[in-house]
Amino acid sequence: MATNLLREHEVAHVSRIMALVALGRLRARSGKDGAEAAFDEALALAVPTGTLQRLAPVRLARAEAAALAGDLARMRSEAAAVRDLARAYRHKWHAGEVAYWQRRGGDAPGAEGWFAPPYASELHGDWRAAADAWDALHCPYEQARALADGDEAAQRRALAMFDELGAGPAAAAVRRRLRRAGVRSLPRGPRLETRADPHGLTARQQEVFRLVADGLTNSEIARRLGLSVKTVDHHVSALLAKLSVGRRREAVALMRQAADHPPKDR
């Protein structure tokens, strides 16, 4: 009985940290207020554990937020905080991401053969392979980030993807890069209805998400809205990507976490 309660507590602890990480990442990627508060709470919960499982997601999300804010010193510091732990456990994803952010900060960590393929490709400067690897994993934000390191055509595609995801800071960075290269004809950005939602969801995606939160399956949502199941599948995949989560229940938990932690006014 006591063991089961302990396990339930540990699961709840990890879930809370991950929900806060997802919330902070969503706010950072969309350029909304409140990312730092979510990350600070997640870090306060993770640090006492001293475990890679809890520390790495927090530190690496904070590194990404620092990169989006243009604070390269803090980006390197956050990534370095879990470098040794990630390498000690030979965690191919965490160690690979640490090296990725270090390289973004001007260091030259090198690519280990055991790093996860997308990060190994990015560290070797192969943006095409990295973008393809992220695409295969259904990670559109990371795919767009890899494309942003490519040629003009790839950067234009990255810009369109960032706009579709509501990733304002990353889209703005790509626009600046293209304009510095002399490109003038660029799309203006997401539609007004997308910008109006704090998470960058379109009106239809908001409608679908409310039904997801009510526990309906995609088939049930399709019948309720008079859509095809394939169309609902597309909407659900898009909203999960915009919320930076991989599962429906994670999206619901994230939105509940957001309701409990509304961003403070500037």
Score class of each variant (00 low, 15 high):
191 R>G: 05
146 A>P: 10
149 D>K: 13
150 G>C: 10
164 E>T: 01
178 L>G: 03
175 R>Q: 04
152 E>K: 02
210 R>W: 03
193 E>I: 07
161 M>Q: 08
193 E>L: 10
143 Q>H: 11
190 P>W: 12
173 A>V: 03
168 G>R: 14
214 D>C: 07
186 L>S: 10
201 L>C: 03
165 L>W: 05
160 A>D: 15
192 L>M: 09
169 P>A: 08
163 D>S: 05
194 T>L: 15
195 R>L: 14
211 L>Q: 15
210 R>G: 07
197 D>I: 02
204 R>L: 09
214 D>P: 05
170 A>W: 02
212 V>W: 00
151 D>N: 15
209 F>K: 00
168 G>W: 03
200 G>M: 03
154 A>T: 12
142 E>K: 08
152 E>D: 14
208 V>H: 10
191 R>N: 06
195 R>Y: 08
206 Q>A: 15
154 A>F: 07
180 R>T: 06
167 A>S: 11
188 R>C: 04
176 R>K: 14
176 R>M: 09
183 V>G: 07
156 R>E: 13
148 A>H: 05
188 R>Q: 14
181 A>D: 10
176 R>S: 13
212 V>M: 09
148 A>S: 15
146 A>I: 13
214 D>T: 06
178 L>R: 04
148 A>L: 09
184 R>N: 09
175 R>W: 06
189 G>M: 06
148 A>P: 07
161 M>H: 02
197 D>E: 14
140 P>I: 13
212 V>Q: 05
166 G>W: 03
210 R>Y: 02
210 R>Q: 11
184 R>Q: 14
146 A>E: 11
189 G>L: 05
167 A>R: 00
188 R>M: 11
180 R>L: 12
154 A>V: 05
204 R>E: 06
187 P>V: 07
152 E>C: 05
199 H>W: 13
173 A>F: 03
